[in-house]
Design a protein around this nucleic acid. Sequence first.
DNA 1: ATACATACC
DNA 2: TACTGGTATGTAT
Length: 863
Amino acid sequence: MEKGDASTKGEGLLSRMALNDNKAGMEGLDRDRINKIIMESSKGSRFYENESKREQQVNQRIEKMMLQKAKITEQQLKKAQAQVEKMVAELERSRDLNRLIVHVDMDAFYAAVEMRDCPELKDKPMAVGSMSMLSTSNYHARKFGVRAAMPGFIAKKLCPNLVIVPTNFDKYRAVSDEIREIFADYDPQFQPMSLDEAYLDFTEHLEQRQSWPESSRTHCFRTSSTTKGEEKIDVSQEAEPEERDLSPVLFEDSPSSSPCLSGSEADGAAGGAFEVFGTSVEEAVREMRFRIEQKTTLTASAGIAPNTMLAKVCSDKNKPNGQYRLPSTREAVMDFIQSLPVRKVSGIGKVSEKMLNALGVSSCSHLGQQMALLSMLFSETAWHHLLQVSLGLGSTHIQRHEERKSMSTERTFRELSKVEEQFSLCRKLCEELAEDMKKEALKGKTVTLKLKNVNFEVKTRALTLSYAVSTVDEIFAAAKDLLKTEIDNVSPQPLRLRLMGVRISAFVSSDDKKPLQKSIIGFLQQGKTDSSQGIHQRLEKEHLVNPSSQTAPSDCLSSAQKCQRQEEATWGRGSKTGEEPKQSFFQRAQAKRLQLQVANANTQAEGHGENASVITSTGMNAEEGEGSSLKAHNSTCSASDLEGKDMVPLVEAQASTSGCVVTVSERLTCPVCFGQVETTDLNVFNKHIDQCLSNASTKPNQYIISDTESDFDHSDHKECEVLESNRDDPQEDQHSLGSLQTVLLINDDNETLTSGQPQSCDDKGPVLICPVCQLTQDSDDLTIFNHHVDLCLNQEVLHQLRGQTLSPINPPSAINSKAIDRARLLSTQASKGKSKRRDSPSSPPSKKAKGLGPHNTIDKFFR
DNA sequence: ATACATACC
DNA sequence: TACTGGTATGTAT
């Protein structure tokens, strides 16, 4: 209660600094003395000052909340109460007590590993970390108030004899792998929360376990040396260290699960004793913990409950080396919850606790009592969570973590004020990040720079690019601009840093396939319907070519926001936009869909073997018709013609049970270069596409042909040269098909388009082609080019959205995203080369390409 | 989309 | 001397 008595004076014990005794192993220690030492060690430091500041911010937040509370009338409260009750009833109805969720948590994990491997440490207070920060401490040290997240130098003051061992993550990871193997035996789908912790769903295991013979529930002790009955008290025992057959001395008093010894007689096997475990959950969990200990010589604690929230709390209850089961009855749960301090609940931290305390809420029973009030003072998500907690509800099924959402690297250092050093550090961080990204083959669009100055004030600055990046240069290009802005704008001049970090998020690589797959399926389902409709009709339907609803292109180009607003009415490129180019765009998109369909068939065949279905593309012929009715304006990298019927190959894909045999009749059109590939062999076809793709993605500047300045009225032709020199590291350029000679042409005013002559690099002049719409442009202004490309991208996405949500047509969602990426890269490089508008420190990054969701990459489909 | 705060290990 | 690093998510603008 007086733990954070800072309130009265604005000073005193800061709730955020004081010893956090909420976790295990901290019972009955001299809190006052400890807090005094902590405060004395911190007082006056920059860290302390910053913490004070933040504390005050929290206090202000609380004050505001209290003011709000004061304004609440009885009536409002009543109304809120009714709402809450309604929701309670609903939640109550959905309560599921049938699952057996287990939370396992290794005891003082890092410290335990170090102790295990270094007997010297066994009876000493020790911690893992550094003088600056500890990641964990053993139970001996905890008695001194030494705990995780405490700086080592303070810990030393609390406990001068503390031994601090540096972290050795590789070791912990190895141990983690060992325990995870065991976890998998009980729930193959277990969810690891960290190296030492996981949630498991024991429900199924238990069902099966009922019919298991004893032999399957029997586990041997690891070696002959240990005396069974004393296993856990038995700290003093010295066994052969190399055998590691003893648990380290973690605790003096283990609360604990009963030893339940048995089978100490030598049963002929290795002189080992064994233990038979029962069929209950408790026994199963005990067995698991036993096995963990036998395997690693480390102990774990576990909680068993009907949901994750409760299981987590339970695992803490008998820690260390213990377990606790909360019965699966509503009564038991509610009973358990009542006295539970809110702070024990995962998700309720220091700040939430403090705010709740201010409202007189410290235990979960209070939560229930004050729910109406809370519903009025907290955000919806917040109070919903609190409500669930108050009812003892939580997640009842475990799911493996999905894909990661961000990746970052950050580092703290002494003080960095020199600009060059700051930049070089930034670069270094980017290198590390790029390396990590590479390992997971990720690409992200948002780069975030994190800075912490010597006063511990943290800043983050983000930049979302219109294309996904992954290389050092790409990331650094963004990060350095962000850094520069901060360096230039910081008020007392030198930017004095103590930490810098780089994060990348908004990944595209992994969630790519889902929307793609979806759209493919959609396409397949639509079959003929889709393609039997004329493209022109479609365009009209979607107001794509309705002149009256168009806005002048210049408007579009001048403001991305305007474009956004246009979404509803006009999504077009402006009244001058010709239909034909649009159509060819669609045409291409459809061709691509077909390619994907084939690829998908292939994938399915591979994936499902005998279940692979026969895929027949019924829509082809219809599309063929469409195609032929259109005059293609676009170029191909090959000299092949672009007759409609050739645009869309007749494909008959067939997946055979013997494995991924997909037969394709006639020629195939490469969705990247649109050239005809004369083969029926998908492997050959894929190879071709791979080449096109890699060529496209790694050599973006090839798309700007800038060698001949002749018949261009460009005054600024230099830009193209800049682009050339700006080329990205071609290191990953595995295939070097120099033949992607499509010249990108962009024309803002499509009326002036010269009609669809295939471009080639032999073309006379430098031309720009928008890689999205494939239209030529004769403007020399790269800024305009950028605008155009971004605009096209927006349109493309809008189209996808419409297709997925509104339109039965399912438009070209499978569009060549590599081309789009390429376009984005290109466009950014262009702006880099020219005006620094886009990334310049003074102006915020332009919000181009707004509304762009993750787009699709097709290359994976062709492997 | 960005910035900042909170939370967890 | 010295108060982390990595990820996710919520809140506010």
